[in-house]
């Protein structure tokens, strides 16, 4: 299971805009490179990232082979209510890696 590093402020004021960061350890193999034996290294990338806040999707992105290894995403969201922020990365193989963080809104 790849490692993930996420950064969400623990607390925020209602209505405050907070910055959220998420990074996953992933080779993002493009499928265009040749291995030592001359055979192509099969494509293996994270192709979809989704962030949900409570039950609402607040940020989503399609990722493509030109995205670097260990993709890092940073975005803002408005703190509305205390809840769970869920980050999910979907690989080409269909495997989904999920990380969660709690946020308290005062």
């Amino acid at each position: 299971m790849p490692r993930t590093l996420i950064n969400v402020p623990k607390t925020a004021k209602a209505g405050e805009i907070v910055e959220v960061r998420a990074m996953i350890a992933h080779p993002m193999e493009t499928g265009q490179r040749m291995g030592v034996n001359g055979a192509m290294i099969p494509r293996d990338i994270v192709n979809r990232f989704v962030c949900t806040y409570g039950s609402e999707v607040v940020f989503a992105a399609d990722l493509w082979p030109a995205v670097s290894a260990n993709p890092f995403l940073s975005f803002s969201l408005r703190a509305k209510e205390a809840g769970v922020i869920t980050f999910s990365w979907t690989e080409d193989s269909g495997a989904v890696h999920v990380a969660t963080a709690d946020i308290t809104v005062t």
């Binding site: 590093l5 960061r21 990074m23 350890a25």
Partner: peptide, 12 residues
């Protein structure tokens, strides 16, 4: 430290 990918190796 949340943006430095080298931290993945440190954690490993």
């Amino acid at each position: 430290d949340t943006a430095n990918p080298g931290l993945f190796w440190v954690l490993d």
